[in-house]
Amino acid sequence: MFFSSKLSKAVFSGLAGTLALAGATTIQAQEISRAQVIATTCYTCHGTYGVSPGSIPSINDISAERMESILQGYRSGQRVSTVMGRHASGYTDEEVKEVAQYFGNVQKRGK
C-alpha cells in the first residue's frame, strides 16, 4: 500500500480536520481507485467510459471475465494486435483483474 503508515494516516486526518475547520470543502473521504485511474488512460483512444466515436473498438460493453481474458491474451501475445500488446504488457495480473472488474461495473452502472 502507498500510504500505509499510521503517521501518514494521522497527517491525512489532520488535513481533513483542518479543511473542515476552514470550511473549504465537504469532506468526502473517498479515494480514487487504481482501477479507475488506469481505466481513464484507456479512454484516450477508446473514448470516455470506453464508448468509441471512431474506428477504435468500444470497450464499454464487455464483461469483466471476458475483458480480463482479452487483456491477458494481449499480454501473452496469444491475441494478435497492432498496439494493444505493447500496452497490456505494462500491467500486473492484479491490475488487469481490477481494471476488467472496473469496466464490468461501469457497464452495469450504464455510464
Binding site: 479515494e31 487504481r34 485511474v37
Partner: peptide
Amino acid sequence: LFRGVKPPLPSHVNT
C-alpha cells in the same frame, strides 16, 4: 488533496 485523501498513484500511457 481537496478531500484530504491520498492521491492515487499515477499511470500514464502515450501512443
